[in-house]
Design a protein around this nucleic acid. Sequence first.
DNA 1: GAGCACTGC
Length: 820
Amino acid sequence: MPEKVHTHFGDEEESAPKQNLQAVPEPTEPQDAGRKKKRAKKRKRDESNDEPQPKPRDQELPQTVKTLSTKTAQKEEPIVDIQREVPAESEVADAPQPQLANNATKSRPKTKSKPLTDTKTNFTSLREKATKLYELRKKLPIFGHADEIRKNLRDQDVMLLVGETGSGKSTQIPQFLVNEFWCRPTPAKIPQKDGSSKSINVGGCIAITQPRRVAAISLARRVAEEMGTPLGSSSPASKVGYSVRFDTSTSPSTRVKFLTEGMLLQEMLHDPWLTKYSAVVVDEVHERGINVDLVTGFLRNLVSGKREGRGGIPLKVVVMSATADMESLLGFFQEGFKAQPQIQNGETNGATGSKDSVRDISVCHIKGRQFPVKTIYSPEPVHDFVDAALKIIFQIHYKEPMPGDILVFLTGQETVEALENLVNEYAVGMDPSLPRVQVLPLFAALPQAAQQRVFAPAPPRTRKVILSTNIAETSVTVAGVRYVVDCGKAKIKQFRTRLGLDSLLVKPISKSAAIQRKGRAGREAPGQCYRLYTEQDYLTLDETNTPEILRCDLSQALLNMKARGVDDIVRFPFLTRPPREALEKALLQLLNIDALGDDGSISDVGLHIAKLPLTPTLGRVLLAASEHGKECLTDVIDIISCLSVENIFLNTSSEEKKEAAEAARRELYRREGDHLTMLMTVRAYAGENADRKAWAERHLVSHRAMQSVMDVRKQLRTQCRQSKLLPRDDRQDQYHDPAPVPILQSFLCGFATNTARLVPDGSYRTVVGNQTVAIHPSSVLFGKKVEAIMYNEFVFTNRSYARGVSAVQMDWVGEALAGQ
DNA sequence: GAGCACTGC
């Protein structure tokens, strides 16, 4: 065996499995060399970031190994696997859950969740099921805290809750609270603008927000079962429902409602005081998506103000997180209370308790249920984490007993596929007396069927090796994993305000992400986590992930705030305040598209755009298209639907397939560029009535993405009909020839600053800023030279790329820029 | 010559 496989990360007390490792065959030289060169070239990009790279290590590492004391992983939670099933926190090994498996449905509206029983809801069997589940609920770590939690919220309006993995918080908290006296609908008089007052019922329902759709739906399903009630719209008596985009399932009697953060924000646009709710539970705050920052900001204003829009009736707020970083949240809400004058007696209609304690905030820690996971660091910095992972994978496989699958965290599709090939090559010559390995790639762009393979049990005497991107960190849980290999890096998207450019770069992960990854090894049994970096490196990692609000374009968030009546953005209570420059840039962008008036207040155009489920620029394009008539608008809706969805065009590694698909796709290509090509694709897909899936496969188009496109298209058309931009009569599409000029000019209304012109040296330079930009290879205009281009996205990966590109005329660009 | 992960009346 060549020296390079000697790397050993094992425990001191265990002898190095050298002999075994030496049995691992090295692939033949030429192949290996060629492949390595290619890979090295490819990976160079990943590593050529602003981050300092660890020095190349020597060929052989010392066999000393540092082993961190076995700490349990602290983080994480809802954890729903791709099969869209049960949240892991409620899973109990011996739980009988026959129905859950059968009821696994996708979150698409077409496959709406079936009633839990036959057409006639069988309440007796629901109750019996719930009674059984109650025995399991009693064993959850949070169950003993029920009284404490109830008492906290009787006395106080805000509670912060740290719940480790498997504590049961997401499913149990709503059930603890739903029968509290303050959770009943309460009559209240709401003062109106004209001085009169209106009597309504305030409260009665609990909202629980989730960052992801699948989590919202599967938690709702689980809680409905535990409460012995039908789910959502399946029965008017249903007490538990959910609401996510394209799929809302509630009933008139819904008391517990799981929804995505985005959905709650949308509800707040129509009902800023959340009058339907007695409590809002914000779950998974540690993930810190931008929506959760907006939600907490709005909620802080709501709980610390005078609640005039709720007739003085308090709103209870529970903020739940898996990390212990509760101090900043505590400070955040306390600051809100401090800034407000003390509430006088009598103004708090429902709440009892002393005046002073009403404003206190309780903090509650719940232990999780996790097995210990041993951390094993690399003794020296790792230069090539793909090679290092390869060695560790086989070291584990040779040394550790079955069962116990291996989950490897990598940065992206490229590294996943590179390692997949390597492991397969090495596995070919493995000692036949050893268990086999089954390599399973996992990344978001992988077709659904291939993703599902990860969840299938391995064949007998086979160890699964799952090579995954970040998708397995939060969104997907794979059962059976006892070994985690963590490369310590992830691709992170960062919006650079000054350049108006999104960068997708490989960066070191945070400590909390490292803990999260490690925790994946301890869900079913004690596990091990091999970190492909030194303990020293670990200690220098940031504590937490950079909140999205510091990494993204803020225009949509600001428009939402303006639409909610937040006039002074600077005084908005941000959990993390974005830099002034980023706020100004977003305001400027909103001004440019006429969403704001010169005084910074929201315009009619802005109000309209804010209600669309689109970025402000795409919303502006839609409005612009409506001025060119109905045909232009429907065409632009088709294109916008594609742009607001993941990439609809697939790629394949197989050359023959590629050529066949290229040929099939050719009929869709339009020389005007990607926008018109998308239009032709949507038309062809929508016009395919026989077998859309087969059509998609033939054209190497993502069926999954196209289903989302059709969902968005339907939603946008409905909204346009409601706002009278489209006529009500819903005639079947009479396809006209598309008119590229008005379509592209509509796009320029939103994207005038996303334009570049051809310069004499044959490259493109941005019209604003004069930066070099290349047409992305995925574009139909790749390699083409046109007078000027307009693009949907400006992304930096290994260089600056324009994506979603169409040819435009310079004088159109001039007009569009002048119009701003 | 290239595709981290989420999400929206």
